[in-house]
Design a protein around this nucleic acid. Structure first.
Lengths: 339, 339
DNA sequence: AGAATTTTCGGCAACGTTTCCGATAACGTT
DNA sequence: AACGTTATCGGAAACGTTGCCGAAAATTCT
């Protein structure tokens, strides 16, 4: 059983003052005698007094907690974003409450309820892969919960959003392939119902157009993030009589699967075929060869999301939600040829 | 600005009953008319009432929150442990508050204060690499905060502990090397002031003894988790006239650094030299060659820690702390020879 | 029918804090 | 000397709940 923690009451009694006075001393209010203040602070120190934030939250109707909900945090992506969130949140004296939805809509709903119940002041949210019904989110927003979305964006929903310029990242990747001499560039594409799938495909297409390379349908493979499919489509590409000299994959897991397939066919990267990934899986630098990839500014995504949320908390109703689009960066490693 | 969330007051007024009645209905107390209860629940549903957990916590002096503090969570290790923690915590109706100390003693102290201030009921803790003064921990424990330690264990501190059998894991690793024909097995060792460093070294030594292989001081390198040192010591080993035919590294990052050094020397793994890591970095399966490594039951560590903590919360003062030691598992990939 | 019991409910105090409001005392002003 | 100011403090209400205690109403028992 816990020993009871000391309260301002204990301090007040020992010092023979009122609890109001103690309270004033503790949060340096102006109208207090410096000497009594000193006495209070010393005794608080001695008793190792920790203010009961629960009572404070209840009284002030303010928890100073912002919620963060992500689909998972065992891969490096979301933890790094959270790091950025925590940086600015801590600087602004907010605490962060982290929950994961495990890619389950049901858990997402449940967690959202828990967050509302805990009276978080705002929420930074990356929705589940299977979230196609936004009732719970809209309902929370209608109750006045500010929400900032990132990573998985839904255009229909109001609120600030932080996203990465997938189009520009894809364009850069393909441009790099072209500039290093590749001419038949295939794309292992993502689902076209997701914006990231569409945008990356568009970046690919526009880069080809810009450099006046022909667009061939047979070089665009709908891998759709699905394991197994990627291998099959990669094999199909390699079997083409006029096989591609480069692969641009919609994300790193897809790229890695393609890499394995290529190596099993006895081909070398990048001599026979170049490969670019997207999104920077943590180990993309450690595989052989280290993979050229489009990396996202994870830290910055978190910082922007937190800043937008806190601005909204401060400015209240007359804050107008913003959408921030951050550029991606191409990290050139050894799965593409030298310029 | 937030719209105010509905309270039991709002429900009480609309239904023309007292707040006590509403409260009773909401937490199905026995002394209430089923019909009024139904009415309350329906209205609560309609208003989308979410109980204010802050008020409840204050009133009941119970937050139902357990704290988790880890040095970082951008690598896979701790997130996976947290997953296990959350599983059992959620099942027991506890919420989890996660903080990271960023390997900084100062932040660890600060976070601990915040946790005390938030009145977490217990703490699951992996201390910082630089934590050598335990004043803040002892003080929290004296105030009645139950703490379960894992990963970084300090023998002197009271409280339950969950650890991995480093000795057994190391023994298995070296045994595997021996059984696949290696005879001169070097050890890239960790800091000897940490139990994990000592235990893994002992497992290495005892495996050699068991199989009656000679122990050579010149094959034991104090890499101490330090980047750069590993490379230097590995190079020294490769330069020996009678160079080792196997390396057992104290952890995966060390192993990977050694791997790079070996490959730069133009040697093949495992033909020229076998390599075993420890602790299973997420990418150890993706490097070339995929690395044989001792893996820890991360999920189970989390589950045990949470179970121990919750048992302590339930049983109160007459709970006697326990230390659980979980076995590690050897995952054989391709950096060691076939049997 | 009256008493005893049960069911159902409302009042109220508490949890620890903040904050408004008013009280007191010491000071300076005319 | 009477007044206004200022510095410092205490009292008390409030935040949203829970849970004890007792009251009223409904039910059962004699």
């Amino acid at each position: 059983m816990r020993n009871k923690q000391p309260t301002i009451w204990d301090i007040a009694i020992k010092l023979n003052v009122s609890i109001s006075t103690v309270s004033r001393a503790l949060r340096n209010a102006p109208d207090i005698n410096p000497e009594t203040k000193k006495a209070v602070l010393e005794l608080a120190q001695e008793l190792d007094y920790q203010p009961n934030t629960i009572a404070t939250s209840l009284r002030k109707n303010k928890t100073n907690i912002i919620g963060v909900m992500v689909p998972e945090f065992v891969h490096a992506y979301f933890p790094n974003v959270i790091l950025g969130i925590q940086e600015v949140a801590n600087a602004e004296d907010y605490k962060v409450m982290i929950m994961q939805s495990a890619e389950s809509l049901e858990i997402e709903k449940h967690n959202l309820q828990a967050m509302m119940s805990s009276r978080v002041e705002g929420l930074i949210l990356a929705i589940t892969r299977e979230t196609n019904d936004y009732g719970h989110i809209i309902s929370a927003q209608r109750k006045g919960l500010p929400i900032v979305f990132f990573n998985r964006i839904v255009d229909e929903l109001p609120g600030s959003k932080v996203m990465v310029n997938d189009y520009q990242g894809a364009f850069m990747a393909v441009e790099h392939l072209i500039q290093t001499g590749c001419r038949r560039i295939a794309h292992l594409a993502g689902p076209q119902n997701l914006t990231i799938g569409r945008n990356r495909l568009n970046g690919y297409l526009d880069a080809l157009k810009t450099y006046q390379l022909p667009i061939e349908e047979s070089l665009i493979m709908p891998c759709n993030f699905e394991e197994g499919k990627t291998r099959m489509y990669t094999q199909a590409l390699l079997n083409q009589t006029n096989r591609p000299d480069a692969l641009f994959a919609v994300n790193d897991p897809t790229a890695i699967e393609a890499l394995i397939c290529i190596q099993e066919n006895g081909m070398n990267i990048p001599e026979h075929i170049s490969l670019v990934g997207f999104s920077n899986a943590p180990h993309s630098a450690f595989i052989t060869p280290p993979m050229t990839s489009v990396v996202q500014p994870l830290h910055e995504i978190g910082r922007h999301a937190a800043e937008l949320l806190i601005r909204q908390l401060n400015e209240g109703t007359h804050f107008i939600p913003e959408t921030h689009t951050l550029d991606a960066k191409l990290v050139i490693r050894k799965s593409t040829r030298k310029a």
